[in-house]
């Protein structure tokens, strides 16, 4: 199976200057393949969000190699990183982070719109179809504040898929939802993964949700450790 992303010896730390230098990631090796659905677990503060931000090209690693879709990405300049992010990656955050000034549909269109600077033909139809897929077609014109938490997060998932990415990075996408809704949103991501072959990396603390994931990885002491469940 084709590799979607590859990390080799990725290191990341914070501080310097006044503050002491603290390394969070001590050399992460990780390869994700096309169509995988991977859960990422680890104690709070272990660096899961940091890792996702690096994989998502939101911040560069201090050291190590990062390959996305066959392209070395750790040393790209801001514009090139932005372009790669826009074309290959989708984000879902713990808080929906929808833009309050735009409708659900406009939010879904935002990755296409922001990346190309305009709306290509067919983008609207594609976005509407995605909203329809998650049962939100009739809410397309609503502002985020007019939607429930579960609906907001579903719009956010759809937004992450709008530009037909190869990899969706989801950082505790259900952390803010009640158990029932969280399970539904998780199931939705599984379905989309199966239907569209998009790779998912999902950070979750919820053991029951993680159980359903075919592949589970842990972040321990700044390194990736195979999940005990998988080893056992």
């Amino acid at each position: 199976m084709a590799e979607v992303i590859r990390l080799e010896g990725v290191r990341k730390g914070y501080g310097g200057g006044e503050a002491p230098w603290v390394e969070v990631l001590h050399g992460v090796d990780l390869v994700l393949h096309e169509g995988e659905f991977v859960s990422l677990a680890g104690p709070s503060g272990s660096g899961k969000s940091t890792l996702l931000n690096i994989m998502g090209l939101l911040e560069p690693p201090n050291d190590g190699a990062l390959t996305i879709a066959g392209e070395r990405a750790e040393a790209l300049d801001d514009d090139a990183r932005t372009r790669l992010r826009n074309r290959y990656l989708g984000f879902v955050f713990q808080f929906h982070h929808l833009l309050p000034a735009f409708s659900a549909l406009e939010n879904v269109l935002m990755p296409v719109f922001a990346g190309t600077g305009r709306l290509p033909a067919g983008a609207r139809e594609h976005a509407l179809a995605l909203l329809e897929r998650v049962g939100l077609a009739e809410h397309a014109g609503k502002r985020p504040v007019q939607l429930s938490g579960g609906q907001q997060q579903r719009v956010a998932i759809v937004r992450a898929l709008a530009n037909r990415p190869r990899l969706v990075l989801a950082d505790e996408p259900t952390g803010n939802l009640d158990t029932q809704t969280a399970a539904e949103v998780f199931a939705l991501m599984h379905d989309i993964n199966r239907e569209q072959g998009v790779t998912f990396l999902v950070v979750t603390h919820d053991e029951r949700l993680a159980q359903d994931c075919p592949r589970r990885v842990n972040l321990v002491d700044g390194r990736i450790a195979p999940s005990p469940a998988l080893v056992g």
Binding site: G56, L58, D78, D79, T82, R83, R85, N86, R87, F91, H97, L99, P100, A101, M110, P111, A114, G115, G117, R159, N163
Partner: peptide, 16 residues
Amino acid sequence: QREIGILRAMGAPASR
């Protein structure tokens, strides 16, 4: 700034 950050994360280049 939160909105700007989100737009950047969605792939809006700095120039835009």
